[in-house]
Design a binder for these strands. Structure first.
Lengths: 340, 340
DNA sequence: GTGAAAGCGCTAACAT
DNA sequence: ATGTTAGCGCTTTCAC
């Protein structure tokens, strides 16, 4: 495997010139550049990024942490991250945690060992190292940007939508459709994003002077399966709800099955709204109303914040809130019946 | 940021000893080991993986290439890869191509520049570098393992299921359910995996002495959207099909919507079978019959092959074929009506 | 069991 | 514009 020395020898120049040809081409005369390019082609050389990173003390790589690549919601965000990373000469790699702390800590260790320069977190987990530092009241132990989730007591650049408002609008929409007994299926209790959405749900109820009933608040974990079983539980609650706000689309899709199996219908018996607008949302029966998040923009903003952090501009506690959008489909449309 | 020298100084030993404490603890007396561990804790040291990789000439990282993290099928495979990687002290990172050649080439370049040691490919794309070398009749330019897809003229370790047989069984099952006019929606034409499945479909037809009608073979691209539009086309074909084999579940789910919108039913008007058994398959209406692939096992086998390749054991053209399974759900069950 | 030292491939400061 | 060289942090002979 050819090294920079081989190229230098072959091109009849110094290693410094070869290096410059790659990093600062404008500082090399074009004739020289040509000689180098020729040698590179002949020997099929490609620079050793490890050596370069070691020397430069930065890897030029960021890792995006997703809870699950099975969750169809993250793709747009990753796309956005990559757009900006590419413009800045950075690589993007993905890590999947499957909700396991150890897995996240494993990726965090890659930053500590300088395999990557920073982490963009899409999930609801924080590296153990970070949690410890927070307790000590110290700063972040590594460059970190949160996309979507926020954490109590953690000062960290962060981009998201206004979850409280999104949930409020979803619930409000159900009320406008004539629902009066509105339930919700939330994410895991510790999840701030989920908590924010529950707050929005309650605000909409309060504003419409509808009672808040604890029995109408079920806890899920954002999976289809949990939506199915939460719905099974909800079917037993009297009086029966007539509208349900699901805190993500996957759970809503799981619930559709439970409702179908019970011989009930949507939106006739239950008007339904989800959250995220995943790709399947408009293909289920009936097509799912939902809150669409601007995923690509979230990713772009997150990577911008990461770049600022890495340039030591200290993005600090910068918080970027982007706009969401209520998408009305048949699952909540009681005005015209529903034809699918 | 502490380096190995800081630790050596603090522990009162040489850098060699510190290094050995991490890499070959058995070659260090336990008392010495303890001193080192103490210094490490005090200075919050973590070894610079770049320096280590540079010295060892291997990065200890493999990249798994997925076409899209929106495709819910890959998660299990990644899980399997990680199981084996972890046992071997390897890191796993993901790269998403979104079907774009440039993106794949970008990840391939990470191997050339020694950021990663090899690539595990889940998609239907090959790095440009590899394609070129193939034309020259040369060997692989980098460690590569194919999971799922195979390529003509490419000698490369590879793990998959028997796609031809899976498709045969799916089609055969439709025939057993009484279907006589069976259509199929394939993947992109160039895709070998898709070609293999079409072959299996045709074999089942031939065996049952059913005619093969080109009009009954539609081309999709494995997305929900393409399933929807292929189905829209298929609805216009006379005589109308009564059974359809979709080469993946996503397309089948898209088709369900088109069928619904046409006022037709499944499995009454069309019995349907998909492929992959993605998580949503049993939650759609009606639940989808499908061919389940042993995803975790595929990933494990792929990483085993990668390890062999990296240990220069030259896995060569090793091919591992794993068992699939026909999952029968309501979408193809005409024996008992369908209750969802 | 432990230490001294060479060197992995590259970049950047300095010299010419 | 180009060359010389130190050194990034680590591992690994080779001595002792």
């Amino acid at each position: 495997m050819a090294t920079i020395i081989d190229i230098a020898r072959r091109a009849g120049v110094s290693v410094a010139t070869v290096s410059r040809t790659f990093s600062h081409p404008d500082k090399v005369r074009s004739g020289t550049r040509e000689k180098v390019r020729k040698a590179v082609a002949e020997l099929d050389y490609s620079p050793n990024a490890l050596a370069r990173s070691l020397r430069q003390m930065r890897s030029g790589t960021v890792i995006v942490i997703v809870p699950s690549i099975q969750n169809t919601f993250f793709s747009g965000i990753v796309q956005g991250v990559e757009n900006v990373a590419h413009d800045n000469g950075f690589r993007v790699l993905l890590g999947e945690t499957q909700g396991r702390q150890e897995r996240l800590d494993y990726y965090a260790a890659m930053v500590s060992s300088r395999v990557a320069d920073g982490l963009i977190l899409l999930g609801s987990l924080l590296p153990g190292e970070v949690t410890e530092r927070m307790k000590e009241g110290a700063g972040l132990p590594m460059p970190l940007v949160l996309a979507c989730e926020r954490f109590e007591d953690l000062t960290c650049p962060h981009v998201a939508i206004d979850n409280e408002k999104g949930a409020y609008e979803a619930t409000r929409h159900l009320i406008d459709q004539g629902c009066r007994r509105i339930a919700t299926v939330s994410g895991p209790a510790g999840n701030t994003l989920s908590q924010d959405r529950v707050v929005g749900y309650r605000r909409a109820l309060a504003e419409a002077e509808l009672p808040f009933l604890p029995d109408y608040v079920l806890e899920g974990d954002f999976t289809v399966e949990s939506g199915y079983s939460a719905m099974a539980d909800l079917l037993l609650v009297e009086p029966r709800a007539d509208g349900i706000f699901f805190e993500n689309d996957e759970m809503a899709i799981g619930a559709l099955r439970a409702i179908r199996e019970a011989g009930l219908s949507v939106p006739g018996d239950f008007a339904i709204v989800g959250f995220d607008d995943i790709r399947f949302a408009e293909f289920v029966d009936p097509p799912l109303s939902t809150i669409r998040q601007p995923t690509v923009e979230i990713g772009e903003a997150a990577m911008e914040l990461m770049m600022r952090t890495l340039r030591a501009e200290d993005a600090g506690a910068t918080e970027i809130i982007l706009d969401h959008q209520l998408i009305i489909r048949a699952s909540s449309d009681r005005s015209a019946g529903w034809t699918g």
